[in-house]
Nucleic acid binder design. Structure first.
Lengths: 272, 272
DNA sequence: GTTGACCTTGACACCGTGTCAAGGCCGAAG
DNA sequence: CTTCGGCCTTGACACGGTGTCAAGGTCAAC
């Protein structure tokens, strides 16, 4: 017979946890002194304790451990739990390595530049969106060429939507497609949830299951800076960009481009 | 200006968390309507939110995130935190892969045997222990040879300790050393915390920084079964045993060996 | 003016574990 | 026999990040 302290010390668990397991019915002491409430454990309870510890060590919750050790599960169910856990662990590991590369990227960045960036890239999923849009051709990818095409396009779009009594339900989005001959097709889109108008295109922007995004503040003439940050992040963190890019207008001030706020979104994948 | 819901949706955070960040002072809304308490966020707060999200994603706690984004840290301190985090992550990863191999080992075991073992191996650290001991030579490693040597040795040991007025402060431990010519030296030891007696050896059993242990119930004649389980576990889980083994007697019943309980301990290392 | 979607605060829950406090029990030393 | 130190008891609170619920206020659209 062991007192709770001895049992705990030998079993490499805290007495607190043994009481907890008792409360959960996971591991009851062999004997409880009726008068004093003292718990006493027998030597052969070490094997149960070890089962619990081992399972906990695999990352099962105490509840799952309880189900497993009390053999409420068939071998088949057990296999199922283990396989599930296996999948979860692989997932965690993948996330863990991604974290690690991110931290390493940060370290490199700080070594290189002596400080941390103030604009931060985050990875997100972009849900599909129904939009109304107009498009046009721009002679090049240069910001100086795109702006003059895009601005009036948005102007027209809002005008036509207003005329049709449709109001946007989200922030305007611009995106681009290669149109050959060094030119690109510029799309000005705005989310709508319903309604239709003859003179705008209704379409659905597809989901971006993994997009690297960065918030750019200020004039689009300086967008290059943010795009570079984004590109470097993608490379440093072991992703590969997939070309498809969007710009979401979060704040627009016709009088002062310095107040503009955009989010750039680029789909990325992790080559493994 | 965004309401909390919009800001949350776009930033891929829950509104609950935005309120939480507000409470922590981590991200205060740009405007709070005095009359209604409504929070409003400005578009340029997305960059702060993104910094927070990105840092959280590296696994920093909200408190650490706060310190980092509020630039309370010098670049040097920042480097320090990142390096620390880097080390932690590597640790976690190592533990994660160990877990994964353990789960895989379990799966193999269950596929092989159709059920889970009831005796479970756990890895522990064994602290160094001061012991009083006697030793003798046994002709072989065979349990049938060792028992008859070990038993009287323990008898003598306890007798001499009793005579010296010393009482043990832990469970008896047996361990073995190769003594050449196929023979082994058998040690019978028992932990003591103080006192000395001329006719026993006082020594310290060294720490075992990583030992695979299993609890064996019953007669030592069947110890082989548990030892095999242990050996297989060690192999399946990617460790290598290091020869050095101990047997701790957790329960001893002179009348009925079926009631005996021992723990076997073998030092292991993880070759990587 | 009604309705439905959104906002507010405050609270409780999860889980595994540490820690603290107030008090009881036990064994050894005086 | 008393006292003391070390163990035991129960009960509580805390951590952290997040979900969820309830009760009530606000806002915009119809």
């Amino acid at each position: 017979m062991f007192t709770i302290g001895d049992f705990a010390a030998f079993g490499q668990v805290s007495a607190r946890m043994l009481r907890h397991y008792d409360a959960l019915g996971l591991l009851r002491p062999a004997v409880v002194d009726e008068a004093t409430g003292y718990r006493f454990y027998s030597a052969d309870q070490f094997s149960r304790l070890n089962r619990i510890v081992a399972l906990k060590h695999l990352g099962f919750s105490l509840q799952q451990v309880g189900e497993i050790v009390d053999a409420k599960l068939s071998a088949e169910q057990l296999r199922g739990m283990l396989r599930l856990r296996h999948a979860q662990l692989e997932d965690e590991l993948a996330r863990g390595t991604a974290r690690l590369t991110s931290v390493e990227a940060r370290l490199r960045l700080i070594e290189r530049e002596g400080h941390m960036p103030t604009d931060d890239v985050v990875l997100k999923r972009i849900a599909p969106i129904r939009v109304a849009e107009l498009s046009a051709i721009s002679p090049s990818y240069d910001g100086a060429d795109i702006g003059p095409v895009l601005q009036p396009l948005f102007g027209q779009l809002f005008e036509r939507l207003g005329a049709a009594g449709i109001s946007p339900c989200g922030s305007p989005v611009a995106y681009y497609e290669d149109a050959g001959n060094e030119t690109i097709r510029v799309h000005a889109a705005v989310p709508v949830d319903t309604g239709t108008a003859a003179d705008v295109d209704l379409t659905e922007l597809p989901e971006l299951s993994q997009a690297a995004t960065i918030v750019h503040q200020g004039d689009m003439m300086e967008a290059e800076r943010s795009m570079q940050t984004l590109a470097r992040w993608i490379e440093d963190n072991g992703y590969r960009s997939h070309g498809y890019a969007r710009e979401v207008t979060l704040q627009f001030d016709p009088d002062n481009p310095a107040n503009w706020v955009h989010e750039f979104q680029i789909t990325v994948t992790r080559p493994s």
